[in-house]
Computed example of a mutant assay.
Amino acid sequence: MATVAAAAGVSGQTVSRVVNGSPRVDPATRERVERAMAELGYRPHRAARALRTGRSHTIGLVVTTLATVGNSRMLQATADAAAARGYALMLMTAGDSVGEAFARLVEQEVDGALVLNEASALVPAAERPADLRLVVVDAPADHGLVVVHSDHAGGAAAATGRLLATGAATVHHLAGPADSFAASERERGWRETLLAAGADVPPVVRGDWTAEAGYAAGQRLGDAAAVFCANDQMALGLLRALADSGLRVPDDVAVIGFDDVPEAANFRPPLTTVRQDFEALAHRAVALLVAEIEGAASPASTVVPTTLIERSSSR
């Protein structure tokens, strides 16, 4: 660092501020220091830096699975958000024991951890190390946790209202797993919208997020004129089941999904769906965790808006 400081014509403290991403450096000075670092081949020594600062600049990400679209997209978005703030990401699959995942992360000396979706439901009962800072994605805002989640209920309400606007007497719901916070919130938004409209509330048909579950549900939805699916994969399976039964979408049955996966616009017909902003969700979660790690602010739970994307499947 002393060599870099001499080459850039600045103090060692200025080099340290540049290395640590401090905003208290003039942009032109920062550029000069970064150019000197590149020319000299200087790289910060992460282990030595951790010994000096007490922080590893690494955050953990705890998941139970990466098989779901939401988790895989959140992994990519979280990795990008962490890198933008100068943090490395350590992935930990939890299985049924989030407490063990926390213990392993503490052993790796991470500065904090994010917990995603299905793993979030396991946090309240898990043993949490006192010094492990946490932000939980998709969980109720209780148990003293800092939580970030999409507006699942609001998105479901918008989808249900759109389907009622097609003239359907009611809207059937292909829901996600009963133990999923996201699924329960989407079911709540659907149910409350029907009750507010004075419409009948049909029995819920439940699936496991997969297209296969959506296809199987197609056999149980009877004469439904409108279906709100808790995710796009189940909607895809439902579309195939309806086509196999000789029913046309949207002429016979209107369908709306949730997530807006990249392929949704290429379903047949193109799928109306509720878009989750995974990038905004990840950036907000990482920002809250980093703020807690660096003591910059007191983190507060956040709800990220969703957007109804209208395509052909809902008329």
Rank of each mutant, 00 (worst) to 15 (best):
G54N: 15
T272E: 13
A81N: 03
H57P: 01
V98P: 13
L239P: 11
M37Y: 02
Q276V: 10
A282N: 02
M1L: 04
A224S: 05
V110R: 10
V10I: 12
A38V: 07
V106I: 10
A88D: 05
P269S: 04
D277Y: 04
G60M: 04
A226Y: 14
D252I: 09
L194S: 09
R188P: 01
T306S: 12
G41P: 03
T166I: 06
A101D: 09
P44N: 00
A141R: 12
G144F: 12
A153W: 00
W190A: 06
L105M: 12
H152Y: 02
E263C: 03
A225P: 04
T3C: 05
G95F: 07
R248K: 07
L114D: 05
A94N: 09
A119T: 08
S150G: 08
A230L: 07
V15P: 04
A6Y: 02
A225N: 06
V290P: 12
A291E: 15
P250G: 08
T160H: 11
V201I: 02
A119E: 11
G214W: 14
R315F: 03
D232R: 15
E118K: 13
G95R: 03
D142W: 01
V25H: 14
V204C: 03
G257Y: 14
C229E: 10
T3I: 12
F278C: 05
R46L: 02
P129R: 10
A217L: 08
T272P: 06
T273I: 15
G154T: 02
P44M: 00
R133Y: 04
T58A: 14
V115F: 07
R43A: 01
L281T: 11
I293H: 03
V62S: 10
F181T: 06
A211K: 09
N20D: 04
S120M: 10
E294R: 13
S314T: 02
T160A: 12
